[in-house]
């Protein structure tokens, strides 16, 4: 201990920038929840502020995507198409957008807000959290779109649709965990941001967004572990189970989905929080 450290201790001073205790940290996050909410709202507004259609783009783009995927995969897959193809694809794309968006926005959340992080002190986890809130807002818009189009393609509303709240709850735990992990990784390795589109693409093809994972594993039984080992396909299976006919999921998948969600979220939080002091230098 140097003389100055002794002086600081004698005067009861605290080290600046020290990571607060977990309880205080969480309390501070809760206190500033309005900030996370407002930041995500404003960012969504800002992202489309200069275009004529404004926030409508947030729905138009995925609608176009579904149309294009529907046409392309519908033609390419031919008779290999899963039953009830369009509702299958709509649910898949909407939920996949949510998970992929959490990953990519989460990864950018610290670096793209670095000016904010450098000039104000607040719990940094609010940034990936706010990226998550944006994804919820986008998702609810898409869900409205899905609820309009599912009946048109022959899926009548039914009570089990309410179970979608449970699915999205579990998927959100997982997505928030991923957002926090990718946020910290991007701070350490900015190069990750270049890889994100590829990782997302691979996940898109490997998770059964436009085909059924069953079909893949039926021919190759040793791949059947993918049913539970890939969290994205777990959440897609659960969502299709509650939303559309002809694609029931095994009930143990609920437990798998919950486990993936809780583990990813808890690990992600501690992974993010343990580098709290470093984020001021990001970007």
């Amino acid at each position: 201990m140097s003389k100055l450290s002794d002086l600081a201790a004698a005067n009861g001073l605290e080290r600046v920038g020290k990571r607060p205790k977990l309880g205080n940290y969480l309390r501070d996050v809760f206190k500033r929840r309005a900030f996370a909410w407002t930041l995500s709202n404003y960012r969504l507004l800002a992202s489309t502020a200069r275009s004529r259609l404004g926030v409508a783009w947030l729905i138009v783009v995925p609608a176009l995507q579904i149309t294009v995927y529907g046409l392309i995969f519908g033609l390419v897959l031919g008779s290999a198409r899963p039953d009830n193809f369009l509702p299958f694809l709509i649910v898949g794309v909407v939920l996949f957008q949510f998970l992929a968006g959490s990953f990519s926005d989460g990864a950018r959340s610290i670096t793209s807000n670095s000016a904010l992080a450098k000039s104000l002190s607040f719990p940094r986890v609010l940034l990936p959290l706010s990226a998550m809130v944006s994804q919820w807002l986008k998702f609810s818009g898409l869900m409205v779109l899905a609820l309009v189009f599912l009946p048109i393609f022959g899926e009548m509303p039914r009570w089990s649709w309410l179970m979608m709240f449970a699915v999205i709850g579990l998927a959100s735990l997982f997505a928030l965990g991923i957002a926090m992990i990718s946020a910290r990784l991007t701070v350490h390795f900015n190069d990750l941001s270049q890889l994100i589109p590829f990782i997302t693409r691979i996940a898109f093809y490997a998770s059964g967004v436009f085909f059924s994972v069953d079909r893949l594993t039926a021919g190759l039984p040793w791949l059947s572990f993918l049913e539970w080992a890939n969290p994205v396909s777990v959440y897609l299976a659960l969502a299709r189970d509650v939303m559309i006919t002809g694609h029931p999921a095994e009930s143990w998948l609920w437990a798998v989905g919950a486990a993936w969600g809780v583990v990813t979220m808890v690990f992600g939080f501690f992974f993010f929080w343990s580098a709290e002091e470093r984020y001021g230098r990001a970007g």
Partner: peptide
């Protein structure tokens, strides 16, 4: 406390507030 240190320590009685220009803003 906004920029992490690479050596040494800084202590304060409460978190100092940095009132500088260049605070974050959303331009749009």
């Amino acid at each position: 406390g906004l920029t992490p240190l690479d050596g040494g320590k800084i202590f304060a009685s409460s978190r100092p507030s940095f009132l500088g220009v260049g605070a974050a803003m959303l331009k749009e």
